[in-house]
Write a protein that binds this DNA or RNA. Structure first.
Ligand code: FES
Ligand code: FES
Lengths: 133, 133
DNA sequence: TATATTCCTATTAATCAGATAGGAATATGG
DNA sequence: CCATATTCCTATCTGATTAATAGGAATATA
């Protein structure tokens, strides 16, 4: 429970790898090799990171991926949400009044509090913090 | 990601149900019915809660389960760990030096920090807080 | 035009959570 | 001693989700 998907761990490694290049680009294959990530699987991950605006890409010969911003400006929460979407400990976090207790459901408030706590932790640390310390 | 297992949600409902009885006992079947939990599945959950000392049981006719302590003394973390074990965002939380970075691995420290944050949240709230407010 | 790349879609494989099944052990009351 | 109600134990099945693979279309370069 509360475990981090392989996808997200791969994504963080890939982002760290790009961060080291300081703007220079790397191909999907290079990242896959350097970080030991299944190559084709990684493509799907980079695609999500790009969709969220964290990285940019060029295709064709000499193409590749590169950071879209300074690693110090990228919050870990952004990476996590790019890959797995909003954190939802329980499905009813976005559904007030889902159970019999109506709007003021204590268990729901409890889980929302947890989500808020996790979000805060992830938002106050950046890729720079995590990849180099 | 970071989602709470159905088992743990069932466990919390079951504990709340027992908490309402203030020491009086209830059978597995009664709890299952009252909380809409698959009966046979619930048996396995109650068994883990008992193994962790959160509830007690008698078997045979007139048997059943009852709270082993005051709900105000039961931390939510205890319930979660009784069901799903220690929280481990990544497998290496208990394996220092698992990756190439050796003992001082920044990503690992990052995830351990998250674990600590989640643990703290869950430890500072009790069953009483969550079941009645 | 050959080649290297991203990008898109579909499929397969592996893993795990959720649920079910059957019955052994045990306690109670008649 | 027996019928019954319960916990308790172990095995299995199922479905959902994640992880991974496959194939090729689109695009850029030289
Ligand atoms: S709304 Fe989710 S438990 Fe009440
Ligand atoms: S020890 Fe887990 S990532 Fe380094």
């Amino acid at each position: 429970m509360f475990s981090v998907s392989a996808r997200t761990q791969y994504a963080i490694r890939a982002m760290s790898c790009l961060a080291k290049r300081e703007g220079r680009s790397a191909t999907s294959a290079e990242i896959a090799q350097s970080e030991s990530i299944p190559a084709k699987y990684l493509e799907g991950i980079l695609s999500r990171l790009k969709a969220s605006g964290l990285i940019e890409s060029e295709r064709g010969k000499n193409g590749g991926y590169r950071m879209a911003k300074d690693p110090a400006e990228i919050r870990m929460l952004e990476i996590v949400e790019a890959i797995d979407g909003r954190i939802k400990p329980v499905t009813c976090v976005d559904a007030p009044g889902a159970c019999s207790q109506g709007g003021d459901c204590h268990p729901r408030n409890f889980w929302i509090g947890l989500k808020t706590t996790i979000d805060a932790y992830l938002a106050e640390r950046t890729l720079k913090d995590v990849s180099e310390g």
